[in-house]
């Protein structure tokens, strides 16, 4: 659409972004509140950050969550890449409809159903619940997100380039590694980041599939929030928001630079 940016448009943007960002800003401001009450300003202080860093339950949960997210993102992106190749390049094969269904359904499936069904699976095969079961559950729904992200890039990539490489004597694997992979690399990086965040963020599926000894950060946050609003949770939220914002901004800057380099060459 061509731009005719009116006053109505400007107001929509301003109100929309105010709605999206004011709650987050308030959360961040009150993490620096001296008072224990989250809604009454009692002066500036960073004491909740200090208390947070001494709270071992939070630190342990953060470590568990990071390890799960790292393994999940890596495996889910690898499987998602294969699934995307299958969706985009395989043409018609037996069970294609079922496969497409299984890739798209988890994107919208209510988490309570995914969580319950995976838990019953782990119980019925007698698997001890803990970090491993959470990771398996996360890989399952994350790989679907990864394959959707990667296949949207793969669709726009001209497969005749790969055929040309094969005609010139490259093995199919070589052609994939030296022609296709570099081209879909931005999508693969985006998929890794997305699945890492999804795993980091998940509460419902993790709480179904975890067992004693494996408490993730969202589970810990949830149990403190149930007991009431606490400044510690605000401090933790601010740290997480800061990390994510930095990550996303750095990733988009890298993306922009890569774009400029490809345009220049």
């Amino acid at each position: 659409m061509t731009g005719r940016f009116s006053w109505f448009n400007a107001t929509s943007v301003a109100l929309g972004f105010a709605f999206l960002y004011i709650p987050i800003l308030i959360l961040i401001i009150f993490s620096f509140n001296e008072s224990k009450l989250v809604t009454v300003w009692g002066g500036f202080s960073t004491k909740w950050y200090g208390e947070l860093l001494q709270n071992e339950a939070y630190l342990n949960a953060a470590w568990v969550t990071l390890r799960i997210a790292f393994v999940t993102a890596t495996v889910a992106t690898a499987l998602g890449t294969i699934a995307a190749m299958m969706l985009v390049r395989s043409g018609r094969f037996r069970g294609r409809t079922l496969f497409t269904g299984m890739v798209y359904a988890p994107l919208v499936m209510p988490e309570v159903i995914t969580g319950l069904s995976l838990l019953l699976l782990f119980i019925s095969i007698g698997m001890d619940r803990g970090m491993l079961t959470i990771t398996l559950a996360h890989i399952t729904f994350c790989m679907c997100f990864a394959s959707v992200v990667i296949s949207s890039r793969l669709v726009t990539f001209d497969s005749s380039l790969e055929e040309a490489a094969e005609d010139l004597g490259a093995s199919p694997l070589d052609a994939f590694l030296s022609v296709t992979l570099p081209n879909i690399l931005p999508a693969i990086a985006a998929a890794w980041l997305l699945t890492f965040t999804l795993s980091l963020d998940d509460f419902v599926i993790a709480s179904f599939t975890s067992g004693p000894g494996a408490t993730t950060l969202p589970m810990k946050i949830y149990s403190s929030v149930r007991l009431g609003v606490t400044p510690e949770v605000n401090a933790l939220s601010t740290i997480l928001i800061g990390l994510v914002a930095t990550g996303v901004i750095v990733a988009s800057l890298i993306g922009k630079r890569a774009e400029r380099i490809t345009e220049a060459t």
Binding site: P23, L27, P218, S237
Partner: peptide, 30 residues
């Protein structure tokens, strides 16, 4: 930039974004 600004909150924890509203909406809230 606008697209990134719409996506950015989605990258921050869902639980935290819901939690943020408790402090705003409760009876002695903001």
């Amino acid at each position: 930039l606008l697209v990134m600004l719409v996506i950015l909150p989605f990258w921050t924890s869902f639980l935290i974004r819901v939690y943020a509203w408790i402090g705003i909406l409760k009876s002695e809230g903001l």
